Simulated assay, not measured.
Amino acid sequence: MFTKSIKIVFITLALVLIAQSAEAQCAMCKATAESNAQGGGGIASGLNEGILWLMFFPYMLLGGVAYLWYRHNKKTKNQVANEN
């Protein structure tokens, strides 16, 4: 039990430290995109498009799982109704 607690603390600490170093990159990307957009470049629009693609796939996966869950529950309910 004690070693499990140590593992949880270690993993939590590691995730916190990783998140802090990743947060620093946001300011650099923002500064680069803003300076490029002011200069008439296309990096900012490409960055925004990339963000939209990254947001799209988790929602598609969640929608697919929800659909499969709905279909499975509907099939199960129909089988139970037919048995009665």
Rank of each mutant, 00 (worst) to 15 (best):
I8N: 04
W53V: 07
F56G: 04
C26F: 15
N73E: 12
V9H: 05
F57T: 09
G64R: 06
S35F: 10
G40F: 06
L68Y: 14
N36G: 02
C26R: 12
K4M: 01
P58C: 00
V16E: 04
A81S: 12
I43T: 06
V16S: 02
A44D: 15
G46V: 11
A24M: 05
V16C: 03
F57M: 01
P58A: 00
N48H: 04
A31N: 05
I8A: 01
C29P: 06
A44C: 10
R71Q: 05
G41Q: 10
W69Y: 13
F57I: 09
A44E: 15
L47V: 11
N84P: 03
V16P: 02
M1Y: 14
F2I: 11
N36C: 01
W69D: 09
N84F: 04
L68T: 15
T3E: 08
K30V: 06
M55F: 05
G46T: 14
L17H: 10
L13A: 13
K74N: 11
L52T: 12
T32R: 02
M55D: 08
A24H: 07
Q20Y: 14
F10S: 08
Q25N: 02
Q25G: 00
S21E: 15
T32K: 02
N48F: 03
G39T: 15
L15R: 14
N84D: 04
L62E: 12
K75D: 03
A37E: 12
K4C: 00
I11N: 02
G64C: 06
L62Q: 12
Q25C: 00
A27L: 08
M55W: 08
I43C: 00
F57K: 02
H72G: 00
L13E: 13
K77Y: 14
Y70P: 07
H72F: 08
I6M: 03
M55P: 03
N84A: 00
L61P: 09
P58W: 02
W69T: 13
L54S: 10
A37S: 08
Y67W: 14
E34S: 00
L54W: 11
L62F: 14
A37G: 03
Y70S: 04
I51V: 05
S35Q: 15
A33S: 06
L13D: 13
C29T: 13
Q79R: 02
I18H: 01
F57W: 06
G41M: 06
G46A: 07
N48E: 05
L54Q: 12
G46I: 12
G39H: 13
W69F: 13
M1R: 12
S35W: 14
A14G: 08
I18G: 00
T3S: 02
G50T: 13
R71C: 01
G41D: 11
H72E: 07
F56H: 11
K75H: 02
Q20V: 14
E23I: 13
N78F: 11
E34P: 01
T76W: 10
K7W: 15
G42E: 10
L61V: 13
N48Q: 04
I43G: 00
G40V: 07
G39W: 15
L68D: 15
V65S: 01
Q25L: 00
Y70N: 08
A66T: 09
H72Y: 11
G46Q: 12
A31I: 05
N48V: 06
W53L: 01
N73M: 08
G40D: 07
N73W: 14
E49V: 09
A31V: 04
C29W: 14
G40P: 06
V9E: 05
I8Y: 10
G40L: 03
C29N: 10
H72R: 03
F56S: 07
A14C: 09
V9T: 09
